[in-house]
Amino acid sequence: MSVIRMKDVSFSYASIQVLENVNLEIDDGELISVVGPNGGGKTTLIKLMLGLLQPDSGKIEVLDREPVSARRYIGYMPQHGHFDPMFPVTVLDIVLMGRLGRSSVGIFSRVDHRMASEALDTLGMAEYSSRLFSELSGGQRQRVLIARALACSPRILLLDEPTANVDIKVEEQLMDTIKRLNESMTILLVSHDLGFVSEMVERVICVNRRVVVHPTSEINGDVIRQMYEGKLKVVRHDHHWKRHD
C-alpha cells in the first residue's frame, strides 16, 4: 500500500522547470532516500508533498488525500540554515511547536508536554530541554528539529538533509535513530550524500529535474553520472558498488 503517490507531476518557479513529469509511489513503512545534486529539486519535491507548493500539472496524493489535508499526519524537518540565532527560544519551546494545531487556542496540555519530552528523549536531547537553541551545535539543532517533527506524532516523517553539517560520529548516531523510528513510521530522507544512505535504504529517489526511483542494488556509476550529468566526480571510500557484469 502506498502512502505517497505522485502522478505526472511537473513544477516550475517562474519559467524555470524544476521538476518534470514525476511519477513515484512510496510504500507504507518504507525508509526511502531522496538524492540528487543541489538545485536539482529535492526540497521542491518535499514541499509539493507537504502542499506548500502547488504543482503546475499532475496529481499528488498523501495518505489518499490532498497534501494540505494530510499535513497533520506528517512530521517535517526543514534544513536548519534559516533560523535567527538571536531568537529567544528554548529547546522545549521548539519541540512543543510540533504539538500546535491540535486545539484552537495554543495552550499546551500535559499530554503535549509528555509527547515533547518523549520526542527529546528519543533523540537523546532530554538533558538539553531548557537550553537556548542558539547555544546548541549544528548536530544538536538537527536533532531538536527532528524531535519537533516527531512531536507531531506523524505517520510519515520527511527529513530534509538531517545529516548536513554534522560530523561522522553524530551522523551515525542519527542514522541509528532514524532506523529505529522507521519501525513505526514511513520515513523519507533527503540527502546529498548517496554513499551514506545507500547502506540503509532499499530504494533511492534520484532527483535532477526528472525523477527516477532505483532499488539501491541497481545503483552504479552510470546511474550516478546520469543523475549528476557528469558535473560531479563521485569519490567513494565507504561503499562498494555492486556490479552487474
Binding site: 506548500l52 499535513r71 517535517y76 526543514p78 533560523f83 527560544v89 511547536m97 500546535l100 494545531g101
Partner: peptide, 22 residues
Amino acid sequence: TIFYNQLLAICFDEEFARLRGI
C-alpha cells in the same frame, strides 16, 4: 496571551507553523 504559542511559532518558523495548521 491567547495566541502566544502560535505567534511564537510563526515568529520562529513560519513554514512549520503553517504545516501545523496555524
